[in-house]
Design a protein around this nucleic acid. Structure first.
Lengths: 134, 134
DNA sequence: TATAAATTCTATTAAACAAGTAGGATATTT
DNA sequence: AAATATCCTACTTGTTTAATAGAATTTATA
């Protein structure tokens, strides 16, 4: 997992703690969660584009969760930042790509095994939410 | 998974088919499995250093498996080429690294969830062998 | 209404990694 | 001696990662 994605999880967890009461400043999150501030700005922007958080500009502004923590699936966030959950493109649900070197996907032994692994991981990632990482 | 790792799996599967009778030339594997030949040379060299295959130089030489296909765990190969199976360094068994931004690993929610995911994946990867991808 | 505080936008950077390619050295068989 | 094959080292090219920088925009409040 990229640091960007890890930081995103931590930021969401931080916002979840004050949900739905208040909003948090980037600088505050950056400081308390040990994330480079300018880097975190980009991350929060991505989370906003993804529809997970919203923001208020200007003095007294900040970020806050749009949805309840228990409705934000870890898999969604992972995909937003790191793309495929699967270890091989040919077993990916959302980022599928055919292997150029493989003539027959159905007969491919690698495909079979890594589909199992993807299924397992996907199940957990779509079952666990931000409220599970508080 | 890197292409290098995927090619390694395919090469091992190829060698497994002629185990223990004969050995295979790099050029033959490269051609039949659609792998760039010079790239495959490096991969087979790594597999040799890792103790999974052996080779014979000179005319009529080639590569062959050292161990039976059902004793070569997919997880071992994955680690050799791509390193950690875990998605976070702090939940890795063989490539452990402490997160600099995390004060307390035991209390970390991310740690907890991604440890579960690692456990799952590891279990399958150390249970499945080269004979499972034939 | 000016000022400070905050997000938003665009660009740049340095380092590492991925996926090869190249060419010659070495060993073995015929 | 010639052909065949692995072995070794280096190089290349493009992409990604993990940031950093600076200015533009929006908003509250003194």
């Amino acid at each position: 997992m990229s640091k960007k994605c890890k930081y995103a999880f931590k930021a969401l967890a931080h916002l979840a703690k004050s949900y739905p009461a208040t909003h948090c400043k980037t600088a505050e999150i950056a400081h308390l969660e040990n994330i480079p501030r300018k880097f975190l700005e980009l991350i929060l922007l991505d989370l906003k584009k993804g529809g997970f958080v919203n923001s208020k500009q200007g003095a007294g502004g900040g970020y806050y969760l749009v949805k309840a923590p228990e409705t934000i699936l870890l898999g969604e966030i992972y995909r937003l930042f790191d793309g495929a959950i699967a270890l091989l493109p040919c077993v990916s649900l959302k980022f599928y790509e055919k292997c150029k070197d493989c003539p027959d996907e159905v007969a491919c032994g690698l495909h079979r095994v890594f589909l199992q692994i993807r299924d397992q991981t996907l199940k957990l990632m779509l079952q666990k939410t931000v409220s599970d990482i508080l």
